[in-house]
Design a protein around this nucleic acid. Structure first.
Lengths: 147, 147
DNA sequence: ATTTTAGATGCATGCGCAAGCAATTAGTTG
DNA sequence: CAACTAATTGCTTGCGCATGCATCTAAAAT
């Protein structure tokens, strides 16, 4: 994935690294609990929102995971249909929707998290062995990323 | 986009940064030349492959942009239908497909590249102002990334 | 001949955009 | 202040499109 400027070249590496990690996590999460990376992300966001006793409107959830509002609506719908979360209209502003992760949802998260972590580490190790990605990976590590 | 481990937290930031850059570039490229980020990436790959006088099979193009083989087939098809590239069976292995960017394709790239670059810089500047992304962006810059 | 590989295709799914609907807020008029 | 209208905001829906998976065909390779 070559490019015109050095800056764009950096973006290409970032992009490839991201896609590689993403596709690995996708497969891992799909296999472990029939869930997509995005669904996992949303559940994760909603779960922490909940433990912090803060409630996010759908719109802010969409922003947090960088997804369109319509896609977020449908994603949350799917999760509700699978019993992983429940929805309720916000009573101070009845346009808003509040969501709560159910027990089943938290159980799924407990399975998904280690699976996702394993996939993430694997992807990173693999990337370190790729000549194109090596500098980027090292840059991230040197700067204390991730972690 | 919070998470369980620090490592996963890093992945979340990386993910958000990527999505932000991506959606900005998508809009910019769409507006500038009715082309998607992926189509741009593929064109870019094929163009450099060509100037280096090397020919890639579709399969390797797919790997380079981290896309499935089927999606790559159809993407290249779309680009051919728009007259941005031409396809030909490889004569030493008639299973393989070779592709060449046309004059129109190179013209489009000439428009797309600066548009994409502008979007990229904008997205980076914006990210630097986001508390969640700031450490990641600085990490990348400190380590000489991108560029 | 069998197996393997490159690419194409049917199908189901998730996405973004644009339009729509309902609730809220701001502004106007009596 | 109350009542009405306009503009905004949060979410949903219709629709077309790109993607991945599984499957298929044709061409090497064994």
């Amino acid at each position: 994935m070559p490019s015109s400027t050095p800056f764009a070249q950096g973006w290409c590496s970032l992009s490839v690294l991201h896609e590689r990690i993403h596709s690995r996590m996708e497969r891992a999460l799909q296999e472990a609990c029939r869930i997509s990376v995005r669904e996992y992300s949303v559940l994760q966001v909603l779960d922490t929102q909940q433990t912090d006793d803060k409630h996010l409107h759908l719109k802010h959830v969409a922003e947090a995971v960088v997804l369109s509002q319509s896609a977020t609506t449908r994603l949350v719908m799917r999760l509700e249909e699978r019993g992983l979360l429940s929805r309720a209209v916000c009573d101070v502003d009845r346009r808003g929707i509040y969501t709560n992760v159910t027990k089943a949802g938290r159980a799924l998260l407990a399975t998904a998290r280690p699976a996702s972590d394993r996939a993430l580490h694997k992807a990173f190790d693999e990337a370190r062995r790729d000549p194109q990605l090596r500098p980027l990976v090292e840059a991230l590590e040197k700067a204390g990323f991730p972690g």
